[in-house]
Simulated scan of single mutants.
Amino acid sequence: MSLGTTECILLTVMAFDRYVAVCQPLHYATVINPGLCQQLAGIAWAIGLVQSIVQTPPTLKLPFCSHRQIDNFVCEVPSLIQHSCGDITYNEIQMAVASIFIVVVPLSLILVSYGAIARAVLKISSAKGRRKAFGTCSSHLIVVTLFYSSVIAVYLQPKNPYA
């Protein structure tokens, strides 16, 4: 999951940005300032770095069979773990815990922020205002949908190679 770590966090930050833009437009310039943006981007990159540092050593210590070939384009931790000849219980537990913090929590925060945005948009009386608010959020919603649908498609595939 380390490939999408930074992206998940940045999508959450973007959802917060859209929330402030729609729900608190008069406070946008004071809430979303350059310093906060730099801090949030730094946190996203730091979490991605820590995730990689934590997952890489245990994965590389696994015994790998010499006759195995990784079919994925990107050599990610799940692909490597799948091709190990040793006990991968620790690695699977570590990935499951990391997935909760890096995929589920950000997705939950994104859904909560868009729930608040939807409530605010529904309170707007003019059709033009609702269109403008929807236009503010639509590009981010498309990115979130594409990112999470591809994550789900890749990581929730059946383990059967013939499926």
Rank of each mutant, 00 (worst) to 15 (best):
P161S: 09
I70E: 10
V154W: 04
H27G: 01
T12D: 06
H83E: 12
I81R: 03
R130L: 10
A41F: 03
E76W: 00
I43Q: 08
I110P: 02
V103C: 12
G35Y: 06
T145W: 05
V97Y: 00
V74Y: 11
I142N: 00
H140N: 11
C85H: 08
Y148I: 11
C23W: 05
F134M: 11
L156A: 10
I70P: 00
I53F: 09
D71A: 14
Y90K: 11
L122Q: 09
L141F: 09
A127P: 00
S126A: 13
D87E: 11
L60T: 14
V144R: 02
T89R: 09
I9S: 03
C8N: 15
L11P: 01
E7F: 08
S79F: 07
C85M: 10
G4L: 06
V13G: 02
I124C: 10
H27E: 13
V151D: 03
Y90E: 11
V77F: 07
L26I: 04
T6I: 13
G4Q: 02
T145L: 14
V22H: 03
L122Y: 07
P158W: 11
N72G: 15
N160S: 14
L26Y: 02
T12H: 03
Q55R: 00
A41L: 12
A127R: 03
A120S: 12
S126V: 13
G35S: 12
L49C: 09
V154R: 06
M95R: 09
V31F: 06
L60V: 14
P158F: 13
Y114Q: 06
G42W: 04
Q157V: 13
M14D: 06
S79Q: 11
H27M: 12
V54M: 10
M95H: 05
Q24F: 10
Y155R: 08
Y28E: 12
P58N: 06
S84A: 15
C137A: 08
V144S: 09
I142F: 12
P78G: 07
I88F: 06
S108N: 00
K123Y: 04
L62I: 13
F101N: 02
L40D: 01
L36C: 09
I142A: 15
Q55L: 15
C65G: 13
A133S: 15
G86W: 05
P106G: 09
P25M: 12
C37W: 00
V154L: 14
A133I: 07
T89A: 13
A118Y: 03
Q38I: 12
V143Q: 01
L62H: 03
V20P: 02
I88N: 05
P58E: 04
G4T: 11
G42D: 10
Y162S: 07
P57Q: 08
C85P: 00
I70M: 11
V20Q: 01
P161Q: 01
A118D: 07
I32F: 02
I47V: 15
V13W: 02
V104K: 00
V77P: 02
H67A: 14
F101I: 10
F147H: 14
D71V: 12
V97Q: 05
P106C: 12
H140W: 13
S99W: 04
Q157S: 14
V74E: 08
Y114G: 04
Q51M: 11
M1V: 14
M1N: 06
G42P: 00
K128A: 15
L146Y: 05
Q157Y: 01
A96D: 12
G115F: 12
A118I: 08
C8S: 15
